[in-house]
């Protein structure tokens, strides 16, 4: 799963530790999500979306976007 977390965090000038504290998770968790090594649970994804005032699908995109065929 790709995500825009690092970009959005940089725009707000937050460190990983600051974001982690706001979410109530460890800095390692924030780093693992940003680097795509860990996909967050739905509650955490909603918390991220709420924090960055984005929709979940604006924050996270699947690695292989499905090909839309013409009908």
């Amino acid at each position: 799963m790709k995500n825009r977390l690092r970009l959005l965090r940089a725009e707000r000038d937050w460190s990983q530790a600051e974001l982690a504290e706001r979410l109530g998770v460890s800095r390692q968790t924030v780093n693992a999500i940003e680097t795509g090594k860990y996909d967050p649970s739905l509650p955490l994804a909603f918390a991220l979306a709420r924090l960055f005032e984005q929709r979940i699908e604006e924050l996270f995109q699947p690695d292989d976007t499905p090909v839309v065929r013409n009908p």
Binding site: A20, G24, S26, P43
Partner: peptide, 8 residues
């Protein structure tokens, strides 16, 4: 949904 604000 349960999301804590701060890590205790």
């Amino acid at each position: 949904m349960n999301s804590r604000a701060v890590t205790p």
